[in-house]
Amino acid sequence: MTLPAVPPDFASAAMLRVLAQGMRELGLSPPAATPEGATVDLGAKRALLTHAVQAGGLDCLALLGRGLHRFTHEPIHRALATARDARDLFERWARLERYIHSRHRVQVVAVVPREARLRHVSLRAGAPPHPAEDLVVLGVLVAFLEACGHRSLMAWAGAARVYPDCDGDALARAVEQRTSHEWRIAWAAQVEPPALEAAAPHRLAPDEAWPDGVKALFDRLVARLPAAPGMDALAAELGRARRSLQRELQQQGTGFRPLLAEARYRAAGWWLLHGGSALAEIGFLCGYADQSHFTREFRRRSGMTPADYRRDFRAAKA
């Protein structure tokens, strides 16, 4: 099968590495080289999908996401696999799509106990995702749900079950009827997943002359990046009234927004000096809206772009 040509665009290189690993685990040979870095031309993704379909048919595509279980060391994996539940995972995924300005988006239709309904859509009218893209993104989300502790997962594209095994005839009908973008995912239970080995900044204020309560709030925000809670959610987690928490922070000479901005900035500095992630990933990991927001805010605070900061100071840390 040949996928249709598309205008120049970008895709996640991490996604391609996952799909290539998924092909290996199915006994299929991926393309000779898989990309490094954060983003690649969208044509590279289309080429890999064409290769996968030629090797294993459409039936294999929703299974390729299982390859991500070999990438627990990657920061993007950690950012998504530490979601608290299905809704939190879908929100984090949506944040990643917005950050990289993906032209394809996952829309949440409904999340109820043990089931979710979603749609895969395009921001460009008249240019919906190809069925192959529908299937691989659905498979990756299922694999992330597994990483978050969801068990006995099943998934459907249109009326066709595609995970953990695929009804090939039903899938062919779904593709023909153009319903492969309509998804249902079900699971039997959610258990506590194995803890990921710490490899990210969690305590970045040990020497600050802040009150212990402010330090604890700061560390909580850093640990929850890129999905740090908002003011209302933070107050609820602490069993406090919003106004009471605001008042306490004001009395200590700070506020929620400055504390969150500082958490993002310090986490970004840590990743730039100690991590090997691409710049395009670091901004997402730290909760910035997109890469331009990351660059603008980091330069405003440090006087340097993230790239200059890494170039000039990382060598000094080596």
Rank of each mutant, 00 (worst) to 15 (best):
D9A: 15
T82C: 11
A86R: 02
A44M: 11
P211E: 12
H130I: 14
E74F: 09
P75S: 08
A159S: 14
R98A: 14
F90K: 03
A278Q: 07
S244L: 07
D290E: 04
W93C: 08
T295P: 00
R266G: 07
H202G: 14
R66K: 13
L123T: 12
D308P: 02
R264G: 08
F294I: 08
P211Y: 04
D88Q: 01
R240Q: 15
F284R: 02
L49K: 09
L279T: 02
A160W: 06
A20K: 00
A199V: 07
R87I: 00
R184W: 04
R301E: 12
A316P: 03
E115F: 01
R178M: 08
R220L: 08
C60R: 11
H77W: 14
E146Q: 13
W93T: 09
Q251W: 08
L89N: 04
A47K: 10
H274S: 12
A20C: 07
G253F: 01
R242T: 13
A268Q: 10
A199G: 08
P258E: 05
L26S: 03
F71A: 01
E25V: 02
H293L: 03
V142N: 08
L259C: 06
A189D: 15
G275H: 09
L249H: 02
P206R: 03
A147S: 14
P226K: 00
V112G: 06
E197A: 14
R203T: 11
R161S: 06
F144C: 06
T179M: 08
M1L: 13
A47M: 09
K215M: 11
C286N: 00
R264D: 01
A227W: 05
G269Y: 04
A199R: 13
A125R: 13
Y288T: 06
R184C: 11
L135Y: 10
